[in-house]
């Protein structure tokens, strides 16, 4: 079973090679005429005001952290789902308790406005 992964590895290597060939073709055949106006970052035709990389709103960080929490929860679902039929009712109730605890956190985040505007 484990050497199925080598098949996937072959696929990855081949895909990377194909992508690099594509970019290589573009670099090879495309014209290269550098001009000042072309190298400016694009902002609807005007010269951009201010530096290119600015600070980002903190909401994105919040979303990322919440995603991690709930993604771990989903990952815990996966093995439970596989052996669910063997576990029976006990497994269901156990999982329900787990979810209920996480739901408390979810509702807290909702009420606190962590899920707003983004």
């Amino acid at each position: 079973m484990l050497f199925e992964y080598i098949a996937i590895a072959t696929l990855i290597v081949l895909a990377v090679i194909v992508a690099l060939i594509a970019i290589g073709l573009g670099e090879l055949f495309g014209p290269k005429k550098k001009m000042e106006e072309k190298s400016m970052p694009y902002e609807s035709g005007m010269t951009p005001y201010g530096p290119g990389t600015r600070r980002m709103p903190v909401r994105f960080y919040l979303i990322a952290v919440l995603f991690i929490l709930f993604d771990i929860e989903v990952v815990f679902f996966l093995p439970w789902a596989i052996v669910f039929r063997q576990l029976g009712l006990f497994g269901l109730i156990e999982m329900a308790v787990f979810i209920a605890i996480l739901l408390v956190g979810y509702i807290y985040a909702w009420k606190k406005g962590a899920l707003e505007w983004e």
Binding site: L25, G26, E27, F29, G30, P31, K32, K33, K38, S39, M40, P41, Y42
Partner: peptide, 8 residues
């Protein structure tokens, strides 16, 4: 393929 590859 034949387009210019611009890098800002």
């Amino acid at each position: 393929i034949f387009k210019e590859e611009l890098t800002p």
